[in-house]
Amino acid sequence: MERRIKSLSYIVFGNVLIAFALSTLLLENNIIVGGVTGFGRVLNYFTGINITLVVYIANVTLFLCGLYFMGKKFALTTLVSTFLFPFLLEIFQSQSIFHHYCRNVLLACVLAGLIIGIGIGLVIKANASTGGVDIIAIILNRKFKIPVFITLNIIDLCMLVLQMSFTSIINIVYGLIVVFLCSFMVNKTLTFEKQIA
């Protein structure tokens, strides 16, 4: 029971950190993002397909992959993030107290990368997922022992490269800062202490 409470607290706190940093640092400063959202942005630009639709379809597909490869327990813990994250994101976006406190874009990138990395690391440490591309990273880690942060790095870098054709160079640089700091903190968080069983 104690292990389950600890696992759930990691998932909740991790999602709080991710939603906070994404809403108040990245979106607030119009910093580009990787992952499923970045993929949706690319498809929207080249095809006109709605970003929300792309994200929804991608998340459902990845969730089913997680269920197939990782089992029901993993899928259930991922569902917690699936419903909790949008709720937290809405809270942070709707409350003015969380806005306009960091207008320095470089500082926002650094803080966001560090905070999101810790958040993702905590969720993965609890044998769960925030949904999206980290499901791919977790599956590859379990099946082929590829470190989670390396897979996340590669996917996010690919999304940034795809956005280069319609995004300014400075925004790409800011995106790279977020990606590298995030993957660094994911790795540090995962190796900080023994993973929850």
Score class of each variant (00 low, 15 high):
F92T: 05
L43K: 04
N171T: 07
G66W: 00
I97Y: 11
S7P: 07
K143S: 09
V186P: 01
P147R: 07
K72C: 04
K194G: 06
I154F: 09
Y68T: 01
T189E: 02
Y68L: 04
S7L: 13
S7T: 14
R142A: 15
L152I: 10
V16W: 05
N104T: 13
A58P: 11
V110Y: 12
F13H: 09
F166I: 07
L152T: 06
F20N: 06
I169W: 08
V173C: 14
L43A: 09
K143G: 06
F69C: 02
K145P: 11
L8Y: 13
I154V: 14
I146F: 11
M70E: 10
Q95K: 05
Q93Y: 03
T37C: 12
G40K: 10
T52A: 15
N187S: 14
G121N: 10
S168K: 12
L106P: 08
L53W: 04
Y10A: 04
L8P: 10
F98W: 01
E28R: 08
A75F: 04
N44Y: 14
L8G: 06
I169V: 11
L157Y: 05
I177T: 14
V60F: 05
Y68C: 00
S9A: 15
V60G: 06
G113I: 04
I172R: 06
F83A: 03
F13W: 09
L152Y: 02
V105S: 12
F39P: 01
D156C: 06
G117Y: 04
K72V: 12
M70R: 12
V42T: 11
E28Q: 15
I135P: 05
A58G: 14
I32W: 01
I18V: 15
S129C: 03
G40L: 12
V148W: 00
G38W: 03
A21H: 13
G66Y: 00
L107E: 11
F180M: 07
